[in-house]
């Protein structure tokens, strides 16, 4: 059996009376694209937020790379190699693409209590950032201001930033959200090209994209994972069809 990069043990999160995460157990194998699907309000984003540290779980344990990261804050998890992208585009709008991605390089390359040398003269960081921009096809627009990009381009920038952190694992929260067909197809290509190098946990609504990308699928319903299996088996899983795919997808 391949190595497990991420292990989630009995994770629970309640918001008042609402159960957002219900006893979730999940293992993500090294090198795979593991997708989480589920109806709206199933708790997918809440789960991602607990993995990246924005929300603290009520109970349970998160193991990453062999040790517990449950007590780590967002920044420390990012430095450990667990990078996330956001469902709602979250970049530094007034900065250029290059500056945005250089921030991502900077965040995972030592501390930033450096007060004197200009970042703009740091060739090494710029080169690393341009590589990530090239990986998502944005390197020809490196000096544009992020706010002036199209929505699809901003989503690509979001992924470039996550890549620039040289993560061991990417948490992608609906990377295709709000994208047109063409842009969506481009994102699928980008993610496919990363396959094998980076472990990816993907939350996505676009079923075509999920089926073409994912090696493993987990189905989240009402905060609980009702099945984890290969794409083929999930498609044929009666319980899953009833709970989720039954309404038009299967």
């Amino acid at each position: 059996m391949a190595e497990q990069l991420l292990n989630i043990h009995q994770l629970n999160k309640h918001f008042g009376g609402i159960v957002a995460t219900d006893n979730v157990n999940l293992s993500v194998e090294q090198g795979l694209i593991h997708a989480i699907i589920g109806p709206n309000g199933a708790g997918k984003t809440t789960l991602i937020a607990q993995l990246s540290g924005q929300i603290k779980p009520d109970s349970g344990e998160i193991e990453f790379g062999g040790h517990s990261i449950t007590g780590y804050n967002t920044a420390r998890r990012a430095r450990e190699g667990l990078a996330r992208s956001f469902q709602i585009t979250s970049v530094v709008m007034p900065m250029t693409l290059l500056q945005n991605v250089m921030l991502a390089v900077q965040g995972t390359s030592g501390h930033s209590f450096r007060f004197w040398s200009p970042v703009s003269e740091d060739r090494e960081m710029a080169t690393a950032a341009l590589e990530s921009l090239a990986a998502v096809g944005l390197d020809d627009r490196a000096d544009r201001i992020a706010a002036n990009l199209s929505h699809g381009e901003q989503r690509q920038l979001e992924v470039a930033m996550a890549l620039a952190m040289k993560p061991r694992m990417l948490l992608l929260d609906e990377p295709m959200a709000g994208m047109g067909k063409e842009e969506g197809a481009m994102m699928v290509d980008i993610l496919n090209s990363l396959k094998g190098d980076i472990t990816i946990l993907l939350v996505e609504h676009d079923m075509d994209a999920v089926f073409s990308l994912a090696d493993r699928l987990s189905v989240l319903v009402n905060g609980h994972i009702i099945a984890t299996d290969t794409v083929e088996n999930i498609r044929n899983n009666h319980e899953v069809q009833k709970a989720y795919l039954g309404d038009g997808h299967a």
């Binding site: 709008m93 900077q106 703009s120």
Partner: peptide
Amino acid sequence: RLVHARFGRVIVGSKFNDQRMQALGF
């Protein structure tokens, strides 16, 4: 000097999008 250095980038980035900066490891 400060603003153009690594330190300043973090400060300015955090002004515009603090959550993002934390997710980047700061």
